[in-house]
Simulated scan of single mutants.
Amino acid sequence: MSEIVNRVAQSSIISLDLEEIYPKEERVVFDLEPFLFQGLVLREKDFRLALKEIDWLQYKNKWVAVLCTADAVIPNWAYMLVSTYLTGIAKGYAVGSLKTLEVMIVEECLSQLDLNSFQDRPVIVKGCSNFPIPLFAYGRIVSLVQSKAKSIMYGEPCSTVPLFKKPKS
Rank of each mutant, 00 (worst) to 15 (best):
S117V: 04
R43T: 00
T84S: 14
F47E: 04
T100F: 04
E53L: 10
Q119W: 09
V73S: 14
W63C: 05
I89G: 07
W56S: 08
E107F: 00
V66T: 01
K60L: 09
Y59D: 06
T69L: 13
L110I: 00
E107K: 15
A50C: 05
K45C: 00
K62G: 03
V66H: 09
V41C: 03
E44L: 06
K60T: 00
D46H: 08
A94V: 03
Y93P: 03
L115S: 07
V95A: 04
Q112T: 07
L98A: 06
C109S: 11
I105Y: 06
C68S: 13
V73D: 14
E108K: 14
K52S: 13
L67V: 02
L51R: 08
A90F: 06
I74P: 13
E102F: 02
V66K: 11
A70P: 04
E53I: 01
I54T: 05
L110W: 05
V73W: 10
N61L: 02
L86M: 04
W77C: 05
E44K: 14
K60V: 02
W56H: 09
I89Q: 10
Y93N: 05
V73H: 14
A70S: 15
E44Q: 15
L49Y: 09
L86W: 03
D71I: 01
I74H: 13
K45I: 00
V41Y: 14
A94S: 15
D46W: 06
Y59E: 08
M80N: 13
R48H: 05
V95W: 03
C68Y: 06
V103Y: 14
K62T: 00
V73I: 12
Y93A: 05
E53V: 01
W56M: 07
V64H: 10
Q119T: 05
C68H: 06
Y79P: 04
I54N: 12
G88L: 08
W77N: 09
Y93G: 07
A90Y: 06
P75R: 13
I74N: 12
L67K: 15
L51D: 05
S83M: 04
